[in-house]
Design a protein around this nucleic acid. Structure first.
Length: 597
DNA sequence: GCCGTTTTCGGCCCGACTGTTTTCAGTCG
């Protein structure tokens, strides 16, 4: 039997990029649109949260946005046969040694091919090393189209690539926000800076960030750029022009700065916030209406093939000028928002101020838990809740360790905790405490506590904390079994992913969604920076299916309760409205939901 | 190769910056 090794999404995306690169090398003009199509397909597959082989098996390849029928057929062939004849014929004639170079920033197909050809480099295994050596010997500078400077740039690019400086470990959102805040505060100290904003994926609040993009409103871009490139944490200047500049800061992260005068600041924000797909779609739509969009403003087609430019200081008036309502940055991903903005039917997304409580909190109550205990008292967390303007809280420490206690001991601990919570509810009026617990779903699908103990609680949050590698069918059964307990109302961090650490467990979410919908169960949007789970794309599915969600912080200390805003951004990216989110309800409404069978 | 609010055919976003050039090619977002 032949063991079939399936390609991962990243490998497939790389293959498609190689196809695009081959087209570029062979005849960029002739294949211009094929190149775009293959690059779009590669992007789409890279961003897919499901492995292609799973999509294929489940007959869901059509869910890949931006991949058309032709490439989809090739992908099906690839997954079935392990190769695609059409791809092979495109790749034929382009030396394999070109492709490794494309992973190095500043190397594109043309440059790589030129060097390969000039030095007759055939070996893809050694090509990077070969070019490095040739650059060191000064041979590259002699090639037509290259010079001493570009030779130096090549050497540096290879060096940085080799030490993994630009290895794309993306920043988790809160880390990126922290970095951005520092540079924003620095920029605001310049008297030439009128206004500063984030741009790009950071402004869209994507859960992981590559580069930090910053917009500055100024009448003196030259001075602002000089000021920017003297940022104390700067390691080196990547580029510097009349209106934009880029620097690398410690940790190898790149910060890009774009400037416009205040009268065009809205245009700048608009031009550089959307995802590539959003931008392309919007600009194409506008073009058909006779508008050309850029960071300078809107060019309007007037008579005799002439254009008239209008600036926009506000982003809202920019959108309005082409007949759209303003689109919140979080949903500028080209997933239907442009069409709805045209018809002025965008949903009103949930906001931080809509949140009235947080139901996933770990205090330091000595519950002798199976997992980590919180570090702050009930009182400290209540005080924090007051600060945040909340009306209720749910304490939900992990259940007492099952292996270290008898069921009777566990009952006893819970009884003591109940007393404390009852006392608190008697002593304070402004905030109501809901008596919850985060209970493990054991490998067999049972909850970690018996019914007698569970009866002492208002409800429980259930979650997986062991046996992550279970197969899909078993894991799905396990979760549904746990959720089916009448006291189980919320599934915490439903996919179990940890950003940059581990993928989620293998679960059939269609079944989870159906079950929640039919049985009045809620899915958590966990705001913890490394979780952000449910992920935004699945929030969108849940919203479309009418499943209720709750945004919790999973705080283990009081200050972490401010992480709520990250959960909000995930919910907004998933198009969640106030009535999709349970902790926007008043206390009585929420209790009614909890008690509803 | 993709795609549909004037289209199933005929279009396809917009600009910055660098280095090697004297007007542009290549890369990037």
């Amino acid at each position: 039997m032949i063991l079939k090794v399936f390609m991962t999404n990243l490998e497939i995306a790389k293959l498609l990029r190689n196809v695009a690169a081959s087209y570029t090398i062979k005849d960029e003009k002739k294949y211009r649109f094929q190149i775009i199509a293959y690059q779009n397909a590669a992007d789409s597959i890279e961003h897919s949260i499901t492995e292609l082989k799973d999509l294929q098996r489940e007959n869901r390849l059509n869910e890949l946005a931006g991949v058309g029928s032709t490439i989809k057929e090739y992908l099906a062939e690839l997954l079935k046969e392990g190769k695609v004849n059409h791809f092979s014929s495109i790749l034929k004639g382009v030396p394999e040694s070109v492709f490794p170079l494309l992973d190095i920033p500043s190397f594109g197909p043309k440059k790589a091919y030129k060097l390969i050809l000039a030095f007759k480099l055939k070996n893809p295994e050694t090509v990077i090393k070969d070019i490095e050596n040739l650059s060191k010997k000064g041979k590259v500078a002699n090639i037509e189209g290259f010079g001493e400077k570009s030779e130096k740039d090549i050497l540096r690019a290879i060096t940085e690539y080799k030490i993994g400086k630009n290895k794309t470990v993306r920043m988790v959102l809160p880390y990126a926000i922290e970095q951005a805040q520092k540079i924003i505060e620095y920029m605001e100290k310049s008297k030439d800076v009128i206004e500063v904003s984030t741009l790009g994926s950071l402004r869209r609040m994507v859960s992981t960030i590559g580069d930090i993009d910053i917009a500055v409103s100024t009448n003196n871009p030259k001075k602002v750029i000089e000021y920017f490139i003297s940022y104390p944490a700067k390691e080196r200047i990547v580029e510097k022009g009349g209106t934009t500049a880029s620097i690398l800061v410690s940790g190898g992260k790149q910060i890009d700065l774009m400037t416009q005068p205040p009268e065009s600041f809205g245009s700048l924000l608009q031009h550089l916030t959307g995802s590539k797909a959003h931008n392309v779609h919007l600009r194409e739509y506008a073009l058909k209406k006779g508008f050309s969009l850029s960071e300078y403003g809107i060019k309007r087609k007037i008579e005799n093939e002439k254009w008239k430019m209008e600036n926009y200081s506000e982003e809202k008036s920019f959108y309005n000028a082409i007949g759209l309502e303003w689109i919140p940055p979080e949903i500028r991903e080209n997933t239907g928002e442009i069409e709805l903005a045209v018809s002025h039917k965008l949903p009103k997304l949930i906001e931080l101020k809509d949140i009235k409580g947080d139901l996933h909190l770990h205090s330091n109550f000595p519950i002798e838990p199976s997992h980590d205990l919180g570090t702050d008292t009930f009182e400290a967390m209540i005080e924090k809740a007051r600060e945040l303007g909340y009306k209720y809280l749910g304490f939900s420490e992990h259940n007492p360790s099952v292996s270290k206690h008898t069921p009777f001991q566990i009952y006893d601990i819970i009884a003591k905790r109940n007393e404390r919570i009852e006392q608190i509810n008697l002593s304070i009026k402004d905030i109501r405490i809901i008596n919850l617990l985060e209970v493990d779903i054991l490998a067999n699908g049972n909850l970690a506590l018996n019914d007698k103990t569970l009866d002492k609680l208002d409800a429980v949050i259930v979650s997986i904390h062991s046996g992550f590698s279970m197969n899909k069918e078993l894991m799905t059964k396990r979760i549904l079994a746990g959720l089916s307990h009448p006291k189980a109302k919320i599934l915490a961090h439903p996919t179990g992913r940890k950003i940059n650490e581990r993928k989620g467990y293998d679960v059939d979410f269609n079944k989870i969604f159906d079950f929640c919908k039919e049985n009045n169960k809620a899915l958590e949007i966990n705001s913890f920076p490394s979780r952000l789970d449910l992920p935004d794309t699945q929030v969108r599915q849940a919203v479309d299916l009418g499943i209720k969600m709750i945004i919790n912080t999973d705080s283990h200390t009081a200050w972490q309760m401010t992480n709520m805003r990250y959960g909000i951004s995930v919910a907004r990216r998933g198009w969640a409205k106030k009535d999709d989110i349970l902790n926007s309800l008043d206390y009585n409404e929420l209790i009614a939901w909890i008690q509803k069978k």
